[in-house]
Design a binder for these strands. Sequence first.
DNA 1: AGGAGTTTGTGAACGGGAGAACAAACCGAG
DNA 2: CTCGGTTTGTTCTCCCGTTCACAAACTCCT
Lengths: 226, 226
Amino acid sequence: METRALTARTSTESTRDIPEATVARLPVYLRALTTLCEAGTITCSSEELASAAGVNSAKLRKDLSYLGSYGTRGVGYDVDYLRYQIAREIGVTQDWPVVIVGIGNLGHALANYSGFRSRGFRVVALLDADPNRHEEVVAGVDVRPFDDLEQIVKEHGVAIGVIATPALAAQDVANRMVASGISSILNFAPAVLSVPEGVDVRKVDLSIELQILAYHEQRKTHGATA
Amino acid sequence: METRALTARTSTESTRDIPEATVARLPVYLRALTTLCEAGTITCSSEELASAAGVNSAKLRKDLSYLGSYGTRGVGYDVDYLRYQIAREIGVTQDWPVVIVGIGNLGHALANYSGFRSRGFRVVALLDADPNRHEEVVAGVDVRPFDDLEQIVKEHGVAIGVIATPALAAQDVANRMVASGISSILNFAPAVLSVPEGVDVRKVDLSIELQILAYHEQRKTHGATA
DNA sequence: AGGAGTTTGTGAACGGGAGAACAAACCGAG
DNA sequence: CTCGGTTTGTTCTCCCGTTCACAAACTCCT
Ligand SMILES: NC(=O)c1ccc[n+]([C@@H]2O[C@H](COP(=O)([O-])OP(=O)(O)OC[C@H]3O[C@@H](n4cnc5c(N)ncnc54)[C@H](O)[C@@H]3O)[C@@H](O)[C@H]2O)c1
Ligand SMILES: NC(=O)c1ccc[n+]([C@@H]2O[C@H](COP(=O)([O-])OP(=O)(O)OC[C@H]3O[C@@H](n4cnc5c(N)ncnc54)[C@H](O)[C@@H]3O)[C@@H](O)[C@H]2O)c1
């Protein structure tokens, strides 16, 4: 958290301290660039890219400026070059082994999702506590006992774990994950996880998203009388 | 967007202008309160509730203050009373009919998810463009042709739609939803949707979540040399 | 070569949210 | 009734993120 010295930065390192809000948008830009690239576009302006990504062009330029000066004034950005730079910055050029715990309704969908593989995430194991699931093979990966977690994490050097178990089991699963060496968790269970310092947790909660929509919806119709 | 007059507010109306960040946390508090309630807790302090919700207690109190003064100084909050107040504020006491479009891997999981029903969201229809899916029945609801959208929306007064189709179809589906009268969309497809003013869109993008984790993970290990 | 037109990168103003800190309000004991 | 202990509601300050606006830098045309 302490501010890093700004002087004497080695030029080989990329720029440090990218704001969290920017980090969250970089994958969006990456996707937009990939789409443009597939359409055969060679260069694009910040205006075009911003509109493809659904953001303000000033915000886009400021975001990109944290990575470095990869554009050309009067011209724009080289699509392929910028795409690579962003991918490198967020680490998508690497291969990230991932484990999914809880192969129920949601776990099945996640295991079958092709969008992970194409972005450098490789599902190396599917784990479930229910022995009845252990005969199953989902998307070419067989479901294994939850107790194999530690061994698999060590073997493949897994850093990222996905939790798709019921809420009651989530904290236990998280504890085991952390104990095994996992330091980033994506949690789909509607539970507040407590993890030690240094472990990142992101949660995806569909009910909350719907409730936020409901709140605004309620005010659209009900508040119309004001 | 214009500032509303603060004078002469009728006392029957609940407080207006709840900050967006607060709205996003209210469902979390609601869940924590429900858990406490089921555990038989009658009252709780802001400190307890905050810890159950995973937030700062000062933030919690400030959030709740936007709804009104529902606590008692020196005592805390009545769990059941506060729960009802929050539920009413975000509209969860109502019944919200919802349609899901795109009954593939993810659509199946969503249709089977029990967490929606228990929070006032009722899946009234499952729609898919693929005729092969139309014989299927998922979670007691039969899959119907996408072209039935307009009729179903009108019939049930649907305001909220969920998109779980491939990215290429998402914009088309959104257009049809809006044309049918839907004004809130939850989008799972990795696509930027453009919708007219007055329509709310929230997106859930699993790849982005993983990429954000990967970015921080990369810096944990790689930046350790600094 | 020079100028007109275009687009990037960034300084600065602005708005909203987070957290600390404290006064006001409530309970219960004596 | 009064007083000490407790907890809320709110004010104030700081920080992060957004947006505007413009100088710097580049291309292309004449
Ligand atoms: N299905 C959805 O669309 C959806 C949507 C939003 C949130 N969620 C949440 O995602 C989670 C999973 O949902 P689901 O519908 O797949 O539930 P599910 O019951 O179908 O699957 C849960 C799986 O987790 C396994 N499991 C239970 N305890 C375990 C443990 N301790 N270790 C390992 N595995 C364990 C079970 O055997 C089961 O296979 C839930 O928390 C749910 O609230 C699901
Ligand atoms: N499966 C996952 O876990 C997962 C995770 C993250 C994101 N997503 C995204 O969610 C979406 C759905 O994923 P999926 O794995 O369920 O895909 P899927 O291919 O299994 O299902 C897509 C369904 O949409 C239907 N469909 C296609 N075009 C349609 C149209 N115009 N109108 C109505 N229905 C149409 C198809 O018939 C199919 O049944 C994709 O955009 C995917 O990127 C999925």
